[in-house]
Design a protein around this nucleic acid. Structure first.
Lengths: 126, 126
DNA sequence: AATATACAACGAATAAATTAGTTATGCAAC
DNA sequence: GTTGCATAACTAATTTATTCGTTGTATATT
């Protein structure tokens, strides 16, 4: 999957948020200073070329949809990060942030609960 | 902390790996096709302006050091990511990847062990 | 001292990304 | 049908990032 530039990512974030929309709809969801209509229009067409977005035409106006979901994109994005910064080990990454206290006790307890469930589930399926 | 461009990040990865070095040392650690000496030299000076790197001068030649550690940078980097993609919740992020099977059972068990230790430690310190 | 070498600093050239003006077309209102 | 408006497509302009040749200077070599 190709990488998003900063401007492209901003547009994708908006589309992910609103699920679908015309350029003018997207425009509303930008913080001030809002970009020009044409700026968004150009970027969304680039995103279409890159395969992140598609559109449905109503006459001459286009309603855009994400093709790549936020989850899909975050998956490849984080994998690259884990690869580059934690020699491809999720464990290293999570441990680091746990020790750094970036993850609260409450969150850790919640994570452990979910992992227990996952571990059990995956062990059953053998 | 400022963000690194792609080229800058590559140079930082090399510096983080070798701990310190002259431009010619860094150069050796690039994959083919290696960039030109001057390219690396320019980028490392930009990194210096941005505060990611400093140098010790030996006469006229410079030995460069990272000022921002890989851990520090990865921390802000991941925080931004968690913020943008998981509404600032580590728990959401980790759960997602656990369910996606991006994290192996072995890794999860290891993570749980570390978290148990962390939770206990943090609860003691009250 | 003259020459060669190594390197930082500078700056020019190119490439990539971003921004937004201009144009053309279709549709609505009159 | 003419006018005005909305929008996609195109394109130009600008900004930012990347790459590396050129220059100047210090140091080593003879």
């Amino acid at each position: 999957m190709r990488e998003l530039t900063r401007a492209e990512e901003q547009v994708m974030q908006v589309l992910w948020k609103i699920k679908k929309g015309f350029v003018k709809d997207m425009l509303q969801h930008f913080d001030e200073p809002k970009p020009a209509y044409n700026t968004v229009s150009t970027i969304v067409r680039i995103l279409q070329d890159k395969g992140f977005v598609t559109h449905k035409a109503y006459g001459r106006t286009h309603e855009y949809y994400p093709v790549v979901s936020k989850n899909e994109y975050s998956k490849t994005h984080l994998s690259t990060f884990v690869n580059d910064y934690f020699s491809n080990s999720f464990e290293k990454m999570v441990s680091f942030f746990a020790k750094e206290k970036s993850i609260s006790v409450k969150e850790m307890e919640e994570i452990m609960k979910i992992m227990e469930g996952e571990v059990k589930k995956q062990k059953e399926n053998r």
